[in-house]
Write a protein that binds this DNA or RNA. Structure first.
Length: 891
RNA sequence: GGGCGCUUAGCUCAGUUGGUAGAGCACUUGCUCGACAAGCAAGGGGUCACUGGUUCAAGUCCAGUAGCGCCCACCA
């Protein structure tokens, strides 16, 4: 057996000293490995962080919550698996590496594709390593042997297979479509990767002459430079104003190209002039209309957003310079009718902020509707539930209006598209295969897949799919997904679809969305803004336990969180409090192994029964809050129980019973027995607190736990406390509540009357015989708490002549003042108190005079109100007597 | 254009079966008394955005208004 080590809990609490040692111990002893327990496994996955750089406080919150749940479930006896890993994050990482290279004056083209990819892998090692350090430092209890990276060989094979399967099913196709094109990143993006920003722009009205007439038709546009690629003009088929022009030909200004005027449903007669230019190669609507009316698709820009040969005189100009010049030219030639200010939302590249160009190009797409159907069904049947529930609606809306997913990216970092081509343009052979096909002349598609095309497989590809591994068998579906609502479409929705498509069942029954962490100004914390504190620095400054606890304690359910570093003090101070409470308890219980003592051998006092009852409440509520994903309330419950009940009251009440080593010799056998009881209860509740707190603050709780005799058992694998209904004790709670109020009243009387703190005062209590008996029984606890020199029980109903007084649950407390202070103070205080009570009293009376209240309110509510009125009346009555008795006395 | 969220103490926010308003920080006063000044004790501070409705009773349910924020949309 390991002896108790009270010395271990040295002063002061120093997180840096203790947080270093436990992670290796847990890992070394396999704590984080799933172990069959007979209960169903609990499986959770990390949302793989991007390897682009350091983690943010948003990650810290997520990891803290995930680890909280996993550690709690492990203590509940579940077999737990927590899979860690990282995402290659195609475009984000490529951009980060390109930026770093640019600072060295190197472009990716200088290195070539292979050289650049090698460079990115080096980057991945560096920043991936940093992320791993951060995760370990935070204490996450993940199984590192199962760590995955989305570009791992096995994981990549899963991605390739998925591409093949979907292609075979006809759900993946290649085609010329209008995509979101980022001219800076020079790649296509999915709709989800475009941020729309409300922008003050302009609506330019341009006259197009009608061939063979002197007339014109005026169209309105927000992007005049695209008119260079116009191949038609459209009006609404219902628009009478223009029917006579349908079938006629317009002459495109500046380009002098003849383009047809057509009628199309897509045109809104109420917008602009009711006539619209058609640019099939640069606008999704125009593309559709162009297809319908068989119009040519003329691309007028290159992939950098620079006007190309089709742009005539504007060739070589950047798209925005071209806009200016086109407007000038139109204006000079008299084609510009007018300009109006126009508010519209403009798409920006999520990664670099560049304005997105709708752009015609050849890309790969996934047909999403067939994949969405089972995912919609699952939500309808409750097979996947969202917390907070309102996200269900967001999910459903997106799913039901889902559009095809552009999955090809013109990048170098990522899973290369497993498609091979051979032969001349137009009559090309194409093979879908991860391997180079047999024969000569095959070249692979140059593009890579969207990052999310690999991430959406995470819940099962990490477990070995497509192989039927034991892990896959045992740990799929996962138990819970905890992530940010900002990736509900990117990731969560797609994982649900992939789960149904490839595993035949959804990936997890529950999704919990964490708060989004914002800075003090309300901006989302992100790497690009650089407004997140460095998690490692935070942990160095406050301790990992403090950071974890604070994040959980602060996170509101389903609301954003404005984060301020200073608030981490809450967790640090709390850890310090726990540390010192444990110090006190270990110092006073010495090296006796409290675990060997049976509760039945002890004679519990009222205070003991009270704290055990309060612990039972705290345990029940903490567990309930964890189960219902109300993590902040769980943290709050443990916090207040520990600090305000255990430390502030129980330990204070226990101190006199413990005595000190030098006083033990003079103790009676009864006192020694009571000392033992007080030691045991203090230990027992501390033990419970450590267990409840461990998932929140694993390091400090393990350190304290190990300072107590445990035969080398780890707190990390100890059991969650079981609810002990025998500990619930309403009587003890009620009686100690009386004691507390009495003590507070005495303290208050002292302070209000300006008595010196150190001054021991005599106190008289007057009340019912039951109350006096109770006070007598608790006298030893009350005296030191309230610093009372002598406690007198007024059995005969007499009261001190000149005294400050207060009423507590019907009992009167007197603090003799004669000769101590100016009585005017006390008179004023009593008057204030009486006025306050009178207000409450009137309210209560009014309520009880109300027939409707008496008839319709629940009986227990009425009864409670009656009792309250009685109590108020009694209290007021006693207060008045106190006032009278002081009135006669001169100061 | 559609949807969602928020508005409670100086600040940041809790408050889930409707029944006498809470926390942390900040503030005031007093405390080196053998766990803890990262602490202890006692306090001050709120017409719970506004209007109306339901109810015996509304921060809590309903409707509307205003401000702030977010998401979605083929806003030429």
């Amino acid at each position: 057996m390991r002896p108790a080590q009270p010395d271990a809990l040295s002063q002061p609490y120093d997180p840096a000293r203790i947080e270093g040692r436990w992670y290796a111990e847990w890992e070394g002893r396999g704590v984080f490995k799933p172990k069959q327990t007979g209960k169903p496994p609990f499986v959770i996955m990390i949302p793989p962080p991007n390897v682009t750089g350091s983690l943010t406080m948003g990650h810290v919150l997520g990891e803290s919550l995930r680890d909280l749940i996993v550690r709690w479930q492990r203590m509940e006896g579940r077999e737990t698996l927590w899979v860690p890993g990282m995402d290659h994050a195609g475009i984000a990482t490529q951009n980060a590496v390109e930026k770093a290279l640019r600072e060295k004056g190197v472009s990716r083209h200088d290195l070539g594709r292979d050289g650049f990819v090698r460079e990115v892998w080096a980057w991945k090692e560096q920043y991936g390593g940093l992320i791993l350090r951060q995760l370990r430092r935070l204490g996450i209890s993940a199984d590192w042997d199962r760590e995955r990276f989305t570009l791992d060989e096995r994981y990549s094979a899963a991605v390739m297979l998925v591409f093949q399967k979907l292609h075979e099913k006809g759900l993946i196709y290649r085609g010329h479509r209008i995509v979101n094109w980022c001219p800076r990143c020079q790649t296509a993006l999915s709709d989800e990767e475009v941020d729309h920003v409300e922008t003050d722009g302009h609506l330019w009205f341009i006259r197009y002459p009608i061939k063979g007439t002197e007339k014109t038709i005026t169209v309105a546009t927000t992007r005049p430079e695209t008119m260079l690629g116009d191949t038609g003009v459209a009006v609404s088929p219902k628009d009478r104003r223009y029917q006579h022009l349908v079938g006629k030909v317009a002459v495109l200004p500046l380009m002098r190209r003849e383009i047809p005027i057509v009628a199309d449903e897509l045109v809104d007669p109420k917008f602009g002039t009711g006539a619209v230019k058609i640019t099939p190669a640069h606008d999704p609507n125009d593309f559709v209309m162009g297809e319908r009316h068989d119009l040519p698709k003329m691309v007028v820009m290159d992939e950098r957003g620079v006007m190309n040969d089709n742009a005539g005189d504007f060739r070589g100009l950047d798209r925005f310079a071209a806009r200016e010049r086109v407007i000038e030219a139109l204006s000079d030639a008299g084609y510009l009718e007018k300009v109006e200010p126009h508010k519209h939302s403009v798409g920006h590249c999520e990664r670099c902020g560049t304005i997105i160009e709708p752009y015609l190009s050849l890309q790969w797409f996934v047909k999403m509707k067939p994949l969405a159907a089972p995912a919609i069904e699952a939500a309808k049947k409750g097979q996947v539930k969202f917390y907070p529930t309102r996200w269900r609606k967001v999910y459903m809306h997106w799913m039901e209006n889902i559009r095809d997913w552009c999955i090809s990216r013109q990048l170098w970092w990522g899973h290369r598209i497993p498609v091979w081509y051979r032969g001349p343009q137009g009559s090309q052979e194409m093979v879908v295969s991860p391997e180079r096909p047999e024969g000569e002349g095959w070249t692979q598609d140059e593009d890579v897949l969207d990052t999310w095309f690999s991430s959406w497989l995470w819940p099962f590809a990490t477990l070995g799919w497509p192989e039927k591994t034991q892990d896959l068998e045992r740990f799929y579906p996962n138990s819970l997904m905890v992530t940010g609502s900002d990736i509900i479409f990117f990731w969560v929705a797609r994982m649900i679809m992939a789960g149904h498509e490839f595993m035949g069942t959804g990936p997890f029954p529950h999704v919990f969305f964490t708060s989004i962490i914002r800075d003090a100004e309300g901006r989302k914390m992100s790497k690009s803004l650089g407004n997140s504190p460095d998690p490692l620095a935070m942990m160095d400054r406050f301790g990992a336990d403090a950071v974890r606890f604070t994040m959980i304690y602060l996170t509101p359910t389903g609301q954003d969180l404005l984060f301020d570093e200073k608030r981490v003090e809450t967790g640090k101070f709390f850890a310090n409090k726990v540390w010192n409470a444990a110090r006190l308890v270990t110092l006073r219980i010495g090296d006796e192994d409290m675990g060997k003592i049976k509760e039945s051998q002890l004679k519990l006092t009222l205070a003991d029964r009270w704290i055990l009852s309060r612990f039972a409440h705290a345990l029940k509520n903490t567990t309930r809050f964890l189960k219902t994903y109300r993590f902040n309330e769980a943290a709050n419950t443990v916090y207040h129980f520990t600090w305000n009940e255990y430390c502030d009251w129980y330990l204070e009440m226990a101190k006199p019973r413990w005595g000190y080593e030098d006083t033990v010799e003079s103790m009676t056998p009864e006192q020694l027995e009571d000392r033992r009881t007080a030691r045991w209860v203090a230990w027992r509740v501390l033990d419970g607190i450590l267990r409840l707190l461990h998932p929140f603050m694993p390091f400090v709780t393990e350190e304290i736990w190990q300072a107590l005799p445990h035969d080398g058992e780890l707190l990390a694998t100890a059991t969650w406390p079981r609810s002990k209904s025998a500990w619930t004790d309403a009587e003890a709670e009620h009686q100690v509540a009386f004691l507390q109020q009495l003590v507070v009243a005495v303290r208050n009387l002292r302070v209000e009357n300006g008595l010196p703190v150190g001054k021991q005062v005599p106190v008289t209590v007057r009340g019912t015989p039951e109350q006096l008996d109770l006070v007598e029984r608790l006298a030893d606890q009350i005296r030191p708490l309230a610093k009372i020199a002598s406690l007198t029980l007024s059995r005969d109903g007499s009261r001190p002549a000149v005294a400050a007084s207060a009423v507590v649950m019907g009992a009167e407390i007197f603090l003799p003042l004669e000769g101590l202070v100016d009585l005017d103070e006390e008179r004023a205080r009593l008057a204030r108190e009486a006025a306050r009570l009178l207000g409450d009293l009137e309210n209560s009376k009014k309520k009880l005079r109300n027939r409707d209240f008496l008839d319709k309110a629940r009986p227990d509510v009425v009864e409670k109100e009656r009792a309250r009125l009685t109590s108020l009346e009694e209290t007021l009555d006693k207060l008045k007597k106190a006032q009278e008795s002081l009135r006669a006395v001169s100061s």
